[in-house]
Every structure is written in C-alpha cells, then in structure tokens.
Simulated assay, not measured.
Amino acid sequence: MTLQFESFLRRFEEANTAFVNGDPSLWLALVSRSEQTSIFGGFGGHEVGWSQIGPRYEWASAQFRPSGAKVEFEYLDKHAGSDTAYTVAIERCTVRYVDRPGEHPHVLRTTMVFRKEHGDWAIVHRHGDPLSPKAPPS
C-alpha cells in the first residue's frame, strides 16, 4: 500500500463522514469527472458518467441530516497498484435521515475502485448496499 493511497483513504474517510452528515462537497472533490465513472449506490439504482453521478451523489447526501455521525471503516481488503486501486469494506455509522425521526444504523458493504488521474487518486466506481444478515440457502 503506497503512502499516497493511504493518505487519499484518510481524505476519503473524512469525505464519507461529511457525506452522511448532509455535506457532499468533500466527496464530490474526490470523484472522477470521467464518463466512465459509475455508482451502484446504497439507495439503489445505478448511474454512469459524471453527468449522472454528480447529481445522484448530491441527492444521496441530502437524504441525511447533520448529526455528528462518524463512519467507521472495516477494510476487508485493499490494494493499490501504480494507477488503479480498490477497497472492500463494511462502513458503519448511526445517522439521521431527513424523512424519518430519530437515529438509524447505517451499515453498508462497499466495493470501491479508484484510478490515478492528474497525479492523484479519484473514485471511479462505488458499489454500496445495505449489509443484510446472513441467510442460509432456502
């Protein structure tokens, strides 16, 4: 793991925490502007290309009220090559949604793909969905 990628991950973690407090600005600064960028987001659906994912990230962050939530990251795997990297993680926090009273656990299983662009890392794909309890085959 390179020091540059580890430093980027700290910025990503800070941006993720701001995101679940209703502020997407730090997150958006880390996202590739490429039309090959994609998201399979925690609120469902999928978007491809900056023109779709920029507004979707803004909408998703607007679903959270500021609460002081801090995302905790359990990295199951992470790797950085010379120009691409990925993480596989569980992201946990307790949030306040704009349309529901009270606090709610927000636990996602995530796979992130990053690419080096203009000398720094950028998010090029996020797959995040709710972590469900393990169920045996039926």
Rank of each mutant, 00 (worst) to 15 (best):
N16L: 14
T17F: 00
T17Q: 01
T17C: 02
A18T: 02
A18I: 00
A18F: 02
N21K: 03
G22M: 09
G22P: 10
D23V: 01
P24F: 00
P24K: 00
S25G: 14
S25V: 11
S25T: 15
L26C: 07
W27D: 05
A29I: 05
A29Y: 04
L30T: 08
L30K: 09
L30Q: 12
S32C: 07
E35H: 12
E35C: 08
Q36N: 11
Q36K: 09
T37Q: 10
S38M: 06
S38Q: 10
S38G: 07
S38T: 08
I39Y: 07
I39K: 10
F40T: 13
F40D: 13
F40I: 14
G41L: 05
G45T: 11
E47L: 03
E47N: 06
V48W: 05
W50I: 00
S51A: 13
S51N: 11
S51I: 06
Q52N: 15
Q52H: 15
G54E: 15
R56E: 01
Y57R: 08
E58F: 02
W59Y: 12
A60W: 12
A60T: 12
A60K: 04
S61Y: 01
S61C: 04
A62E: 11
Q63L: 08
Q63V: 02
F64Y: 02
F64M: 02
R65M: 04
R65A: 09
P66S: 12
S67V: 01
G68W: 05
G68E: 08
G68V: 05
A69T: 04
K70T: 14
V71A: 04
V71K: 01
V71F: 00
E72Y: 06
E72W: 03
E72V: 07
E72I: 04
E72R: 11
E74R: 15
E74Q: 15
L76N: 00
L76T: 00
L76C: 01
D77E: 14
D77A: 13
H79Q: 10
H79I: 04
A80G: 14
A80Q: 15
G81E: 04
S82T: 07
S82E: 09
A85K: 07
Y86E: 04
Y86M: 03
T87N: 02
I90E: 01
I90H: 02
I90C: 01
E91F: 05
E91M: 07
R92N: 15
R92Y: 10
R92Q: 15
C93R: 11
T94R: 15
V95M: 14
V95T: 11
R96P: 02
R96N: 04
V98A: 11
V98F: 10
R100M: 14
R100C: 09
P101I: 14
P101G: 15
G102R: 09
G102Y: 06
G102S: 11
G102N: 09
E103W: 10
